[in-house]
Design a protein around this nucleic acid. Structure first.
Lengths: 168, 168
DNA sequence: TAATTAAGTCAACATGGTTGACCTTAATTC
DNA sequence: GAATTAAGGTCAACCATGTTGACTTAATTA
């Protein structure tokens, strides 16, 4: 009985591991967006606004084109969301002095406050997961997820020290 | 200079690690859904159809209510997508003999073929990432992501052997 | 000066979520 | 056996956020 099933078990365990990865990513993403979504409701904003607020906060002075590359959406789609965040003073823009076609986006104080409110729930979720899993596991988590990301975007996801070295 | 900055560096490295986790999850999810989306276009289906096909394939005989709990969407939203998959014979349903109110959902042969086409691109992505990161890293990846998922759903994401033991 | 680049705008449309009201059938409980 | 509950389905209206396509303006670069 053991021999009969051993090949099958080995094969299905392998597929099983891959499917487990797929499902982990699905469930983790689903739950990781849940808390911010509830906060956003209070401000009449959506998940798309959160993404913009997050990446502008993370990359002060980022331009529209750079933001589009990160989000992988069209200019027209971004414009609705970003336009609203500019109107409601969560985000400010000013022309890049070195190339006045470019507009540098930054969070206003109001925007920073909201960014913190949103992101802190996600950081707490990660802090709990990291603590529970241990430092070695965190390193493994990084290595696997970096491998899931398309190679050309891997450089975007590096700790600050390395990001500073590879500066544009 | 070193002393002056050391506290700041320590504090920001911690936040940096948490933000890196957030970004890894964002980029990984974004890229992980990209390939199936392109395939789905050929069949005039969307990402929502993929999720239904995936979880029905993974849980043959699953009921509508169970599917709703996994996806965390409303019955009305699921109905549009599931209705279309039933009409186009990707999914079949039959009444549960033990409780005829319940409808058991399964993939048709056509559904299984599509499920494989879609999922195999994602499994290949995971296989490459797992191979590149190593077995220890994979274990860490699991431990961290399980910690991100809400506790009540952690049991859903277990290898087959354990799933079989905890059977309903 | 001509071409290119960054940003913005208008319009039409698709997808997949939501709420709310209501119905049928089957099972369970009183 | 009657009343209640549970599972599933349906109609309608609406909303958020994505798409394509065409076009404009201002600034920079060749």
């Amino acid at each position: 009985m053991v021999d009969l099933n051993s090949n099958v078990d080995t094969a299905s365990l392998r597929e099983e591991d891959l499917r487990q990865g797929i499902e982990l990513l699905f469930y983790a993403y689903r739950d990781f967006t849940g808390e911010p979504d509830a906060i956003l409701d209070k401000y009449d904003l959506g998940r798309a606004h959160h993404r913009v607020i997050y990446f502008v906060g993370r990359n002060p002075g980022i331009t529209v084109t750079e933001l589009l590359e990160i989000l992988r959406i069209t200019k027209q789609s971004l414009s609705r969301v970003l336009g609203h965040l500019l109107e409601t003073d969560f985000i400010s823009q000013r022309a890049d002095p070195a190339d006045r076609r470019r507009k540098q986006l930054t969070l206003s104080d109001k925007g920073k406050t909201l960014e913190h409110e949103l992101t802190s729930t996600q950081m707490e979720r990660f802090a709990r997961a990291y603590r529970g899993a241990g430092a070695e596991a965190v390193e493994g988590f990084r290595r696997v997820l970096i491998g899931i990301v398309e190679p050309e975007d891997r450089a975007r996801v590096r700790p600050a020290a390395i990001r500073a070295q590879n500066h544009r």
